[in-house]
């Protein structure tokens, strides 16, 4: 199976003509990672993004000397999409290939010129949905923390403040729930 076939198999590209997908693979080259390869390192400057075509990856966060897996990433998902739009950021997690992986390498400045390519349109819509989902998820966690925090403050349980923060943010940063 080549990269075009892999792209065609992803729902977001199912209605996109193969010629457009072929152009996409020229603008966004295919890269492959062996199992165990560290694709992104937490703390590194973020300058590219990846669209997963095949394989599984895991996001891992190091915090205070411990490492925890915080999520799995599979075909059709985008990794590090913020790097496409916000220069100067850093990777918030390490990303490691759990199995042999094939991805499209998305670099800022390369694909923006091709707004008439249906594959780009589909990719941008997918980026929008991905970002919106991440915002909603993060916001839900913050609101929960806010609500619990307020209750702790109101009851005078000042000591609870730290534990509340540590309790509600781990699914964003990999810290252990206690």
């Amino acid at each position: 199976m080549d990269a075009i076939d892999a792209l065609s198999g992803i729902p977001l590209f199912q209605k996109v003509p193969r010629t457009a997908l072929h152009e996409l693979t020229i603008l966004a080259p295919v890269v492959e990672f062996a199992e165990g390869h560290v694709v992104f390192h937490q703390g590194w400057a973020a300058s590219v993004s990846l669209l997963v075509l095949r394989g599984q990856l895991v996001a891992r966060v190091a915090h205070e000397g411990t490492e925890r897996d915080v999520g799995e990433i599979g075909p059709g998902e985008i990794i590090g999409e913020q790097a496409l739009f916000v220069p100067g950021g850093q990777r918030s997690a390490s990303v490691i290939a759990k199995s042999p992986c094939t991805c499209l390498l998305l670099e800022p400045g390369k694909w923006e010129k091709y707004s008439d390519n249906p594959a780009m349109v589909a990719l941008e819509r997918h980026l929008l949905e991905t970002l919106a989902r991440r915002i909603r998820r993060t916001n839900a966690v913050i609101r929960e923390a806010w609500s619990v925090e307020r209750d702790h403050s109101a009851s005078g349980a000042d000591q609870g403040r730290r534990s509340v923060l540590r309790r509600w943010f781990p699914n964003l940063f990999g810290e252990e729930r206690t």
Partner: peptide
């Protein structure tokens, strides 16, 4: 964001 310190690069 622009003040974030660059540690390494995934270039």
């Amino acid at each position: 964001v622009s003040k974030m310190q660059v540690v390494h690069s995934d270039a």
